[in-house]
Design a binder for these strands. Sequence first.
DNA 1: GTCGTTTGGTTATAAGATAACATCAGTGCG
DNA 2: CGCACTGATGTTATCTTATAACCAAACGAC
Lengths: 169, 169
Amino acid sequence: MADAGSPFHEAPHDHHACVAAALAAADLVCRQKGARLTALRRRVLELIWSRHAPARAYDILEQLKGERGGAAPPTVYRALDFLIEHGLVHRIESLNAFVGCNDPRYGHSAQFLICRRCGTIAELEDAEVARLVRARAAALGFRVSHQTIEIAGLCPGCDAGSGDPTHAA
Amino acid sequence: MADAGSPFHEAPHDHHACVAAALAAADLVCRQKGARLTALRRRVLELIWSRHAPARAYDILEQLKGERGGAAPPTVYRALDFLIEHGLVHRIESLNAFVGCNDPRYGHSAQFLICRRCGTIAELEDAEVARLVRARAAALGFRVSHQTIEIAGLCPGCDAGSGDPTHAA
DNA sequence: GTCGTTTGGTTATAAGATAACATCAGTGCG
DNA sequence: CGCACTGATGTTATCTTATAACCAAACGAC
């Protein structure tokens, strides 16, 4: 149950299904593109998907070191470069961290909602936000190539628990 | 300030006036808040305003080292912390760099247009963009505390010079 | 003046990322 | 098979960005 109504995955859910779906989508995308999703790259993607929160490169590295010899920073960053290049992973600039893409099948302009309390991140693909930004830029003669939109705040669960009576149970 | 019609400052303009205005505004804001804009902090702000492009911490540090003894990373980062805390400077997450705030007199949600060719950055304060983002987040039960919106692309000048007369994608 | 607070100096190190070169695995082909 | 070619990974070193911890100087209040 991946909570189809909300991009948040706070409550306990069948996370194994999330990971499996992400890996299957990655297999498909890479096969279609002729890109080689090697064991290493696949494992890095799986580690990134281990939680619905951004993963840091050196945390991934620690995991890899425990699993295989000779993992060093370039090992991780090269895998990340590949995954980002093929749209399987997004870089979160405000956290120097990485999160799996919800829908890697086609390019999109995403927005991220990042809970500053529990770290949960939700990916939106709000076309209206993307379009408004592009329109405002175009009105100034600016040609957009990439949008970085990262919104910090409190996710529904953490906001409800933060003592605000209007949100309390 | 120069070029009131566009947030871009590509063409030659009276940049000394930009810097003077920014420093005067900073003096005013700090006086009103009772914050101490020391010589060091003022100088760091001035260095950040030296161009309409983001300044990196270690570049500022190099400048300071040449001007005064005993400048070290904490010297710069503490000044930056102060300037950011008082809304005089914005951090650009996607560049690990810092840019002067166009209007430090009150808090706002800004958006940045960053030219990937010449490095020029323009700060927008588009209330509609900010409001739409907040609305979309609120619809999901997310309480926004900070928006990071950094748009990469080509500024009007660099786009015009990029050899594509039709501006087609 | 002197007390307490803020600011800045100093040293060391943590965290994030890349450069450069070596080696290994797969593939095509004679 | 043996070789060359290519892409992927291993390896070492280094670079960039940022912070921790502690000390000394400057400032403002009284």
